[in-house]
Write a protein that binds this DNA or RNA. Sequence first.
DNA 1: CATGAATGAGGGTTCATTCAT
DNA 2: AATGAATGAACCCTCATTCAT
Lengths: 231, 231, 231, 231
Amino acid sequence: MTGQSHDPISHITGEMMPKSTFINLPPAKRQAILDAAIAEFSAHPYAAASISRIVTAAGIAKGSLYQYFANKQDFFLYLVEYAVQTQLQLLQSLTPPAPTTDFFGLLRWQMSASLRVGLAAPQLARLLQRAFAGDVPFQAEVNRVVGTAGSLHLKQLVDDGIRNGDLRADLDVPLTVFVLQRVLGELGAHITRHLDLSLDAVAADLTLLDRPEVEAIYDHLLALLRSGLAR
Amino acid sequence: MTGQSHDPISHITGEMMPKSTFINLPPAKRQAILDAAIAEFSAHPYAAASISRIVTAAGIAKGSLYQYFANKQDFFLYLVEYAVQTQLQLLQSLTPPAPTTDFFGLLRWQMSASLRVGLAAPQLARLLQRAFAGDVPFQAEVNRVVGTAGSLHLKQLVDDGIRNGDLRADLDVPLTVFVLQRVLGELGAHITRHLDLSLDAVAADLTLLDRPEVEAIYDHLLALLRSGLAR
Amino acid sequence: MTGQSHDPISHITGEMMPKSTFINLPPAKRQAILDAAIAEFSAHPYAAASISRIVTAAGIAKGSLYQYFANKQDFFLYLVEYAVQTQLQLLQSLTPPAPTTDFFGLLRWQMSASLRVGLAAPQLARLLQRAFAGDVPFQAEVNRVVGTAGSLHLKQLVDDGIRNGDLRADLDVPLTVFVLQRVLGELGAHITRHLDLSLDAVAADLTLLDRPEVEAIYDHLLALLRSGLAR
Amino acid sequence: MTGQSHDPISHITGEMMPKSTFINLPPAKRQAILDAAIAEFSAHPYAAASISRIVTAAGIAKGSLYQYFANKQDFFLYLVEYAVQTQLQLLQSLTPPAPTTDFFGLLRWQMSASLRVGLAAPQLARLLQRAFAGDVPFQAEVNRVVGTAGSLHLKQLVDDGIRNGDLRADLDVPLTVFVLQRVLGELGAHITRHLDLSLDAVAADLTLLDRPEVEAIYDHLLALLRSGLAR
DNA sequence: CATGAATGAGGGTTCATTCAT
DNA sequence: AATGAATGAACCCTCATTCAT
């Protein structure tokens, strides 16, 4: 496949795709650019991230980047999309739970999985955090690119839990999803902080997450969500 | 020498306070500067916020700002501190709950209070969010300035709840504090989003929070935290 | 009050004035900037003229120019205005004709005067030519700055000529003004070309225009305009 | 080697012709390139005209253009030549005047004809205007390409007029040609401006030029040139 | 012959900070 | 103490041209 003509999709999906020139790049070069860009955009807020530093780190000419992407915003949106896709792939590479698992079993798997995904690619996670933290002047485009992927998945989980009878039927579903999102989203940060681990250390050795202290935190959190705080 | 070179000394002396010149300013002028700065730093990420726009809006000379603060970072840190103090004052101005109230009663008050505080001064809230969202290249200094104010207060609440017997004695206290922090921190956003209110509308008319739907959300969240999700 | 309040004056006067910073510059420095800018904008079309070359030639920092003018367009518009004013002053410095001179006498003086003005400051003349030659992407602003100065003066001349009885009463005045404008506007170019003079040579020594051949051309042109081409 | 470096050889060999590759192109493709280029170079000053936009609009590869033409200047010079040729062809396609017509009759036909030609192909006219307005950094080459075509024709007309006895024998011929050139060159602009017509409107409907007001302007201008301004 | 990715100098502009007044 | 002009590095982006495929 050559694909050197104009990409018909880009007209439909708007400016969130790289030009075909980037797609057709030798994988090693493409990855070098991605690596440099992810490092830069995860280390600095969007406004402070520097295209110049990226091209220097990637070893390409500045003009080349503008053959691949229309502008800084387009570039960043592509990285956001790439980060989402990569994280989804990471997620799917993990051993899924048995299909018969109940809600809290699934939630436990979800905890471990999102932790591992977040820590396996901490730069991608940081980049995505930035994309949603009001860091960018084009929040709407970010949302359009990412869609509601994250919360939709959780909503499905809760809906199924109610249907299965695992959860109370009178739950405020949006509120429940909100709580789960907020808690799961930063659970990794809590654990690393609480166990005095550095993000880098964990990223370098994910087996640090197999420690019983971590399992204990999962258990505590599950107990809290399952039965509440009250005596 | 010109430019944005870092002063190595500032790291040693730890400047985070305005010089006395700012303290001694006529209150009206001081407030004009604060207003302009808070508007700018809440509207733009730290890196994109412009000193030039601030001094223009405040009607002062650019050089004057550098008589009051060592540099942009020092200025921002002062604003963070100011925001924290102001929010604490707002909090203390609200009718406190009866001292005999139990943990969940206190928590309910806390929900309403943090919502009102966040919405009464949305710019300050936004600025603080930015300060913690990795927006700034001097995260450590931010944490040093703010201290553990927020979570300390919640820890106290939980500790008391356990002591009073309102809460289960086997709670993982740091984990519980973490959950409460995460949930309370964005509860306002969830409510405004869920009830289709705009932040500005609520900020303009805090009585919108007196609607029964809001109370219902408090109730649901309290029930969830008290008794958990399980049937 | 805070925010990015607009300067109320700029809305009225429009962006065609330098900031006061330029006005207050030491005359020598101000002139150096003007000289460098006029040289650049007369030597290159607007789009090809380089701010970088100007500041280098003027010996100032690039940022300084942006303290004086809002942007390239604003800068250029100021130069256009300056060129018009300077040429008017040059014009007024020439010995005016006796007040009783008839139309064709006045026209003869006008020929000589506009020639001398155009050649005394050939860069300004060239810059103004560019400003009207569709060189700039903001033609409307150029016209607003310059106004109808040039053609108004000629119209006055023609109107007076008709009133005095020097000219036929049935003239199409706008057409006549158009013809005079077109012919006078490039008369200097015709003369230098025809007499094999270089613009620079004439600019360096205006007395070259005192040659009888030049006077002869005036006479021929006057005769042509007075009595037409027909035998 | 990259960049906009000048090829020193091109000055010697005087490339102003397209390479044979362009001549041998399928007519449809060749015309697409010409159309795109004329649109671009008539819409933007030479320095601001973009080769990238041209190849995009023409649907060809950027490199292909450099197979046809040595560089931007060479390309532009070819377009100038093409514009001149095309306008001459347009001119010859108009009903010529009777061969016995006198000078002023021929001039009247010339007025109408140059108006129609200029308005029938306004982009070509605009491009030629730019080529002569000092828009380009290679004025000498432009003049060499176009030659003295325009003024030669007028000179012929004047010479014949004198020989026929239609014109005064003591005319300064170069001056007369100069006057006619200047007046005829912008007559279209004067008429459209004076009659409140837009260039586009006239270009779309050339019959707008058949209005009696236009004829009246021709008559006035002829009278002015024939008998002069004096009473 | 056609292609279009690669180039890097150069474009205009903004920035936080300094310092002479 | 207050000023605001001066600075020049850094910003994002565009350009005409080349050359390996």
